[in-house]
Simulated assay, not measured.
Amino acid sequence: MATLELKNIRKSYGATQVIHGIDLDIPSGDFCVFVGPSGCGKSTLLRMIAGLEDITSGAVCIEGEVVNHISAAKRGLAMVFQSYALYPHMSVKANLSFGLENIGMPRAEIEERVMQAARMLQLDQYLTRKPGQLSGGQRQRVAIGRAVVREPKVFLFDEPLSNLDAELRVAMRGEIGDLHRRLGNTMIYVTHDQVEAMTMADKIAVLRDGKLEQYGPPLDLYNAPANRFVAGFIGSPKMNFLPGEFRSGQVHLKAGSAIDATAFAGAGDVELGVRANHLEITDVSDGALVCEVHSAEQLGGETYIYGALSDDTPITLHRPGQVPVRRGEKIGVRVDASVVHLFSMETGASLAT
């Protein structure tokens, strides 16, 4: 296990800066997930930690030691790629042992590490097979096993599940989580899928345009987002944002309702953020927002309703059970004021006190 610190990390390609001074402290044994939209810099940041990408300025520290000028092979890290990167002509066993053979490790120790990793990842019955004879999930386990046998200080995962189908992704998330609990190593995991981030991470680093937007435990980011971007990115379905004006402790929505906001500080144009499951369906009456239903997803145990308010603001409701609504129907919507968020229209920052 090892601590990992990023100190004012910057990356430029010529005059174009892509990573803008990121500071991050990842404690030993943590499972940290870098999440953000495509092009936000998360994979570039991971490759800089790994030593596969030069650092323009700042420092990467592993166990307190600056490793900027230490080669990737000597940093004590192991990386699992999206593409698996297995040798197709080698057996599973040969793939697992190849890296250890290259550094001259004794044969007996290689055998012990390979067999231990194979048992841990349930690959022991596939050791003589070639990668082409394995399923996607099995190939991914071989790629993870190749990292495990190195006994690294830190595991780095670069979108390792993006090539798998939905059902297999869920299963592999569980397997990687189990691996982390068994080994206790520090792990950094890159994904664009916020569901993966929420279900796997001890802490999440949300990135946008090469900047760190927020860092902390998943539920802290969900319950107390620092800004509109984090609020909209973390959580599924996406948070609803309703424009309005904040005055005298209330948000006067453009859609025609006033919501208590005495827990916030600010004034002027704002966006009120409310999650889909914090909206209730009621009669169309004074005080309720009016939503015209555009579509509904009936999933048996839950219903998602998509529509628009009177000012054309799109809105999503999530209700338990089976809610009978029709396209074009108008329904009343009440907001649970105790769980709303408020963001500055100008800066996007949270106005929570």
Score class of each variant (00 low, 15 high):
198 M>Y: 03
27 P>E: 12
251 V>R: 15
282 T>N: 06
177 G>D: 10
328 G>W: 13
124 D>N: 13
228 R>N: 05
147 A>N: 13
64 G>I: 04
139 R>H: 06
127 L>K: 01
18 V>N: 09
137 G>T: 06
277 N>K: 14
192 H>G: 11
184 G>N: 09
271 E>H: 14
226 A>S: 14
123 L>V: 01
229 F>M: 12
346 E>G: 02
7 K>V: 12
345 M>L: 09
142 V>S: 10
198 M>D: 06
255 A>D: 09
201 A>I: 04
4 L>D: 01
102 N>P: 00
137 G>Y: 04
13 Y>N: 11
61 C>W: 00
7 K>C: 06
79 M>S: 01
175 E>A: 11
212 L>M: 07
254 K>M: 10
135 S>M: 08
224 A>G: 05
12 S>Y: 00
342 L>C: 09
328 G>I: 06
294 H>N: 12
322 Q>T: 07
302 E>I: 02
146 R>D: 00
270 V>G: 03
308 A>M: 03
137 G>I: 04
254 K>F: 05
19 I>F: 07
269 D>K: 10
306 Y>F: 15
51 G>F: 02
174 G>S: 10
145 G>P: 06
333 V>R: 12
166 A>G: 10
299 L>D: 04
79 M>H: 02
123 L>T: 01
31 F>M: 14
343 F>L: 06
301 G>C: 03
167 E>F: 02
264 F>Y: 11
239 M>G: 11
183 L>H: 13
23 D>W: 04
300 G>Y: 06
260 D>T: 09
317 L>W: 05
224 A>N: 14
25 D>F: 02
290 V>R: 15
344 S>I: 02
339 V>F: 02
218 P>F: 11
240 N>A: 14
35 V>F: 08
17 Q>P: 00
160 P>W: 10
102 N>T: 04
310 S>L: 12
271 E>L: 15
303 T>R: 04
346 E>L: 03
150 R>K: 15
213 E>V: 02
99 G>T: 06
119 R>Q: 13
321 G>F: 06
90 M>F: 04
139 R>C: 03
264 F>Q: 02
112 E>Y: 09
121 L>E: 08
214 Q>N: 13
69 H>V: 00
317 L>F: 10
199 T>L: 07
129 R>K: 15
336 D>M: 09
178 D>G: 01
